[in-house]
């Protein structure tokens, strides 16, 4: 196990290095520089700024400097926010994003699992159909459209919730729902399918043949086995929620990382783009590792081995 984790961490570092490299060069392909919007600057001033930030160096040198800094934990300095350090800026903004992400993950998976379970147990009834309808809507309506609909009906028309901003818990409800819909839908679909398959399997019939109560058969024998594959999709879902939150934060004017990230790209804030990308990437690889480790916990058939058996 320890060997496996060590091996995975080495792979994670390689992955992160490749992401950093690819993002760096792609970003440099973007037209313009951090200072091309500032009309008030003279050519001489711009040249001085380029010199100061090392933007006149050849690309390989800039790349080497960046990677060197990154290894030492230095993500550089933002161009747009008064020369503040990128890592500080990210830490400032992490609160709302983390809260939104956590709330939507919990809401999406819990409601999705409940709906999926109801669908499977009450298959081909009105419960099943309404649960399916909800999942299909959640999957097919993009989150930004859904966000707009929520804002229009629940906030503007009925006035139940604030339209935007991030103050009280009440402010977080609409963005959470909008962000969680896709996760909810995918979880519902997945658990329903898995549960139906498991409930039709031989070991469920055997469990019933033992004379166990229906509820014991469904939950003790059925649900656990149906949940195993659901864990697999949790990794990708967390990622889709992270990317989804970029748009959601923009729509609801939430002061989170996503909103800042979108602005950084518009402003060619190189260090900020790199920093945020690396932040998301680290989160992503860690989530995938956790999902793989969770697998071992719930499925006794899987034993992780590092390298050789």
């Amino acid at each position: 196990m320890a060997r496996y984790i060590t091996q995975r961490i080495i792979y994670m570092i390689i992955t992160l290095f490749l992401i950093a490299t690819a993002t760096f060069f792609l970003m440099k392909l973007l037209p313009g520089t951090p200072f091309n919007m500032e009309d008030k600057l003279t050519e001489a001033q711009k040249a001085a700024l380029y010199e100061q930030y090392g933007l006149n160096d050849p690309l390989p040198v800039q790349y080497a400097n960046y990677i060197f800094g990154l290894v030492q934990g230095d993500m550089g300095i933002s161009f747009q926010f008064d020369n503040r350090k990128v890592e500080d800026l990210i830490m400032d903004r992490i609160g709302p994003s983390a809260q939104l992400g956590f709330q939507s993950l919990v809401f999406g998976t819990v409601i999705g699992l409940i709906l999926g379970l109801i669908s499977a147990i009450k298959r081909n009834t009105a419960y099943d159909y309404s649960s399916n309808l909800m999942a299909i809507l959640g999957k097919s309506i993009p989150s930004f459209v859904f966000a707009g609909l929520l804002q229009y009906y629940l906030a503007v028309k009925f006035g139940w919730f604030p339209v935007s901003f991030w103050d009280s818990f009440k402010h977080t409800i609409l963005p959470t729902i909008a962000n969680a819909m896709f996760t909810l839908a995918v979880t519902q679909r997945f658990l329903r399918t898995e549960m139906l398959e498991v409930l039709g399997s031989d070991y469920i019939v055997l469990a019933r043949a033992k004379g166990l109560k229906n509820s014991v058969v469904t939950f003790k024998h059925g649900l656990r086995n149906a949940l195993i594959p659901v864990i697999t999709i949790m990794g990708p879902l967390v990622v889709s929620m992270m990317t989804g939150s970029l748009v959601i934060e923009k729509i609801f004017a939430i002061p989170g990382i996503g909103e800042q990230f979108v602005r950084s790209i518009q402003m060619n804030d190189y260090a900020m783009i790199m920093g945020t990308t690396m932040f998301f990437s680290i989160l992503f690889v860690v989530v995938i590792l956790i999902v793989d480790l969770l697998y071992v916990v719930v499925d006794p058939r899987i034993r992780l081995t590092g390298g050789k058996e």
Binding site: Y203, L206, A209, L212, H221, P300
Partner: peptide, 21 residues
């Protein structure tokens, strides 16, 4: 009655046991 008075052995032992128990 099931499992107590009448019990059953199934065809495929590869699938008739709960894999996670």
């Amino acid at each position: 009655i099931r499992g107590k008075d009448i019990s059953m052995i199934f065809q495929d032992p590869m699938t008739s046991l709960n894999p996670t128990m």
